[in-house]
Design a protein around this nucleic acid. Structure first.
Length: 877
RNA sequence: GGGUUGUUAGCUCAGUUGGUUUAGAGCAUUACCUUGACAGGGUAGGGGUCACUGGUUCGACUCCAGUACAACCCA
């Protein structure tokens, strides 16, 4: 078989993905095995794959594949999120482009368009994910608005309402005037922006004077219902009980005092606009001030303002400035840096606004979820996020769950008469309740009017680990009992509160149990300038192009190598390139092994014999370390160990030792052992690089149809021989040293050398000598007692080696090298001696540390001694 | 403004309860290699007063305090 020297991922990837699907290897049904479960963080149904998804799903797939190969019943549930605001915004924009306005459509018509859009674009992202090799159980694919999930959400709403945990009320909310909906506190991002601070004077009633107020929002002056100062502020004490006149509105409002006001800020005097600022709102409540909402839903000025009616709020600010100037109220304008809240979804400037919304009481609900994380029942990786989580949970606010949108789960509240309402699972139940509650048995469905609003997207997402197994509708079903709680949740830190915390809350509330054991927070993918990757910046590579260019395995390795938990990943092309190179390395190692001809009549060389023995131990050691790192969710570390195991130990050392001479055959024992080692290596690498490992595994030995690497078992964690590995490490050092000699003396590899060991033959461990002979092309190794003249020498540990060079020895160079070595060892010895001369150290340090220091000392001394001898000899030549 | 975390080689990061040689890895870099698995490779190198200043200790990259800078979260 002719195998190309470069691995071509394209063909192998689709071939094996189809093969895995055909054989149902991703499927999971409950059985007697231990389950391993992950629910996917559902991407937006109409979203497109970005680098964050690539990272996130690679990690999940590595964990799932590994668990599967550990003999667990691995189940990874895929799905998509309806993404209320985002999807509705896209549909509105699309309709607008076709000349259709949302408000010209009925709710049903609009939803028709939204579903059409969802069916057309939905799931594309899941198809893209398949290219990455993810092993989800596709038969379980879910959607947050499919029938079962929809029903679950409604049931949960009714349940929480009946428990008194959901209420309806007028509150100050974050209003997105572009989407024309309320958004939760978590959906507001604050940024520093340049704005202006306006100094405006208000006429004092019954006096000639004015009082000056500093504000960033002159357009809301029309909504002022008081002016306020700090009660301790001497400057304003004389205004107690006075009224002032609101500019432009010419309305008299009281001058009040409240300790909220910071006397240092501006003039120390604040205008109070209860309808448009959360703090003003609270002051308004305390002093029973009226509240005048000067804005409409879309951010234009309302009729209540009496001025600038219908003008957009930003334009109104300019007009207000001019008007105040004209009327002589504007004293000065300063530049000012302000924190501006913007909507997560639309980026519109958020307007605090009083409105009637649905809320969920969080304090009581969140207690078990807080305890679970603090006690470690749910572990967050990396642990640094634990503090953040605690802080948020201890200061949790009620959650505004209603959204003034159509795309989503419609709030199951029905109104009748004068805003009386009932909450029920469906309209017929609602009717029955309404009849009872109102005492009007004649009432029928047409007398009921369902709430127009839908629920926050996260109100369905927070149930995801439960609804993935239909645990709300059917709490005792076999799936939920088997798979819940799930094992690991892999997601980005930015949605720790939006999603993760709330899932934990829901888990305890509706299942009485945590939703997952571990939360692994990945970093953000950034570009080289540390900018977040985003479509608008255009700094994000197209994931599918990367897969095409570097192969899925290469991209996976690239993403993983550089993403320690919780740290951001600075993406550059060299990452997948490194992954691709690794795939190529594996490929060529296979080509080498595959090219060997086996001759049953050849005896196994000693060098191969010890190499096989050593390789087994090294493999066990790495498997130990990989396991340890996976337990700590140090996945990039685990990959790095795997990488070095294959590249350095296996390819660099093992294969070089056992490699038969050019065009010669290999013995049976070594060949079989090598194939077995290769087989194990492929298993270890498979979770990281599923495609190339399957491709090679299928070629390595004859396989039957239906066999697959992905359903074999990983080699188990076993004890290993540390001493053997340590001896081989010093052999590596020796070999390196010989190579260095060769190189510095320009001796070609083909020319044989002899190696002299100055050591007692009986006490010297000569097990690995054949390896040195082979890799250094030695003709002989002999043990000597005396120093050799005209030989290059070096030390490994405390053993001295030398290589006779005939006349080629460069005495000057050799002396310089020895001098350098001497300097190092002498300096080192000085440090050790300093320690040992310190009485207090000798008295206080533990025995093992002391012993170690003494050994360091004697080792250094003996090294120095041999170096000095060597130097003396050279000088005498 | 409040909080959290970080600052170790050119870059990205390890460094596990203070002592295992004078700090490690990968990438990048330098020199050499027209070697028969792989130049997407091999071999051998170079590169760090562990941000700064104090303190605790026989001993500090590691613990404590302060300073500077950075990132993130919250208001």
């Amino acid at each position: 078989m002719d195998i190309p020297s470069k691995y071509d991922p394209g063909k192998a990837e689709s071939k094996w993905y189809n093969y895995w699907m055909e054989h149902g290897f991703f499927k999971s049904i409950p059985d007697g095995r231990e389950p391993y479960t992950i629910v996917i963080p559902p991407p937006n149904v109409t979203g497109v794959l970005h680098m964050g998804h690539m990272l996130n799903n690679t990690i999940q797939d590595v964990l799932v594949r590994r668990a599967r190969m550990q003999g667990k019943n691995a189940c990874w549930v895929p799905g998509t999120d309806h993404a209320s605001i985002a999807t509705e915004a896209k549909v509105v924009a699309k309709l607008k482009a076709e000349g259709i306005e949302k408000h010209d459509l009925t709710r049903e018509e609009f939803l028709g368009h939204a579903w059409e859009w969802t069916h057309k674009h939905g799931g594309i992202i899941l198809e893209q994910l398949k290219r990455l090799g993810v092993s989800c159980d596709w038969d379980r694919t879910l959607f947050t608005m499919d029938e079962k999930r929809y029903d679950s959400v409604i049931k949960v709403f009714v349940n929480l309402f009946n428990k008194g945990l959901i209420y309806r009320g007028v509150r100050m909310v974050n209003w997105d005037p572009q989407a024309m909906t309320a958004v939760s506190d978590e959906e507001v991002n604050y940024t520093d922006e340049k704005s202006k601070l306006y100094y405006v004077r208000y006429k004092i009633v019954g006096e000639d004077g004015y009082v000056m107020v500093a504000t960033t929002r002159p357009e809301t002056i029309l909504g002022d219902t008081a002016v306020c100062a700090n009660p301790d502020d001497e400057r304003y004490k004389h205004l107690k009980g006075k009224m002032v006149i609101v500019p432009m509105a010419n309305r008299e409002v009281p001058f009040i005092f409240d300790s909220y006001v910071d006397p240092e800020f501006g003039t120390g005097c604040l205008k109070i606009t209860p309808a448009h600022d959360i703090n003003d709102y609270e002051i308004g409540l305390r002093y029973k001030l009226p509240s005048i909402d000067v804005f409409n839903e879309d951010g234009t000025i309302s009729e209540r303002a009496g001025l600038f009616v219908g003008v957009d709020r930003f334009k109104a600010k300019e007009l207000a400035e001019k008007e105040l100037q004209k009327r002589g109220n504007l004293v000065k304008v300063e530049n000012y840096n302000n924190k501006i809240g913007r909507s997560e979804r639309t980026n519109a400037v958020i307007e605090p606004r009083l409105s009637l919304q649905w809320f969920m009481k969080m304090k009581e609900l969140s207690q078990p979820a807080l305890d679970a994380v603090l006690k470690g029942d749910v572990q967050i990786h990396p642990a640094k996020f634990k503090n953040l989580y605690r802080h948020w949970m201890e200061n949790v606010h009620d959650w505004c769950i209603s959204r003034q949108l159509w795309w989503g789960h419609r709030i199951p509240a029905w109104y009748y008469d004068n805003n009386e309402f009932v909450v029920a699972g469906n309209i017929s139940e609602a009717l029955e309740m309404a009849r009872k509650k109102s005492g009007k048995p004649s009432m029928n469905e047409s007398d009921l009017r369902q709430d127009e609003d839908v629920l926050d997207t996260w109100f369905s997402a927070w149930l995801w680990p439960i609804t993935s197994f239909d645990g709300i509708n059917d709490p005792e079903n076999a799936d939920i009992k088997y798979y819940y709680p799930t094992n690991d949740l892999i997601t980005a830190p930015e949605i720790l509160f939006f999603w993760v915390a709330r899932m934990i809350i829901a888990g305890y509330e509706f299942r009485g149990e945590k939703p997952f054991n571990n939360v692994y927070l990945t970093g953000l993918v950034r570009d080289q300038q540390r900018r977040k990757m985003s479509k608008s910046l255009g700094n994000s590579p197209e994931p599918l192009d990367l897969i095409k260019k570097y192969g899925a395995d290469g991209v996976r390795v690239g993403m993983l190598l550089c993403s320690p938990a919780g740290n951001d990943l600075l993406y550059e092309d060299s990452l997948p390139e490194q992954g691709r190179n690794f795939a190529n390395k594996i490929w060529n190692a296979f080509r080498l092994v595959n090219s060997w001809k086996v001759d049953d009549n050849i005896e196994q060389p000693d060098s191969s014999k010890v190499a096989v023995k050593w390789m087994d131990e090294v493999m066990k050691k790495s498997i130990n370390e990989i396991d340890l790192n996976f337990r700590k969710f140090r996945i990039s570390e685990a990959l790095m160990i795997t990488y070095k195991l294959f590249w350095d130990e296996f390819s660099g050392w093992y294969l070089e030792i056992i490699k038969p001479e050019y065009q010669k055959s290999i013995d049976r024992i070594t060949f079989d052992a090598t194939v077995a080692v290769f087989d194990k290596l492929l298993k270890v690498i498979h979770p990281f690089m599923p495609f190339i490992t399957e491709e090679i595994w299928q070629l390595l030995l004859e396989r039957k149809d239906g066999e697959s690497l992905m359903v074999t078992r990983l080699p188990e964690v076993k004890k290993y021989n540390k001493d053997l590995i340590a001896s081989f490490e010093s052999i590596k050092e020796t070999i390196s040293a010989v190579r260095t000699v060769r190189k510095s003396k320009d001796i070609p590899n083909k020319e044989t050398l002899s190696l002299l060991v100055r050591s007692d033959k009986d006490s010297f461990d000569s097990e690995f000598l054949p390896v040195i002979c082979k890799l250094c092309n030695l003709s002989e190794v002999s043990f000597v007692e005396e120093k050799q003249e005209g030989a290059a020498s070096f030390m490994v540990g405390t053993t001295e080696y030398s290589i006779p060079l005939g006349g080629k020895l460069d005495i000057e160079g050799e002396l310089a090298k020895i001098q350098e070595d001497l300097d190092y060892n002498r300096g080192f010895l000085v440090n050790v001696m300093k320690k040992l001369a310190n009485e207090r150290f000798v008295q206080n340090a533990p025995a093992n540390v002391l012993e170690l220091e003494r050994k360091k000392k004697s080792d250094a001394e003996s090294k120095i001694k041999s170096l000095e001898e060597r130097m003396k000899e050279l000088k005498n030549l």
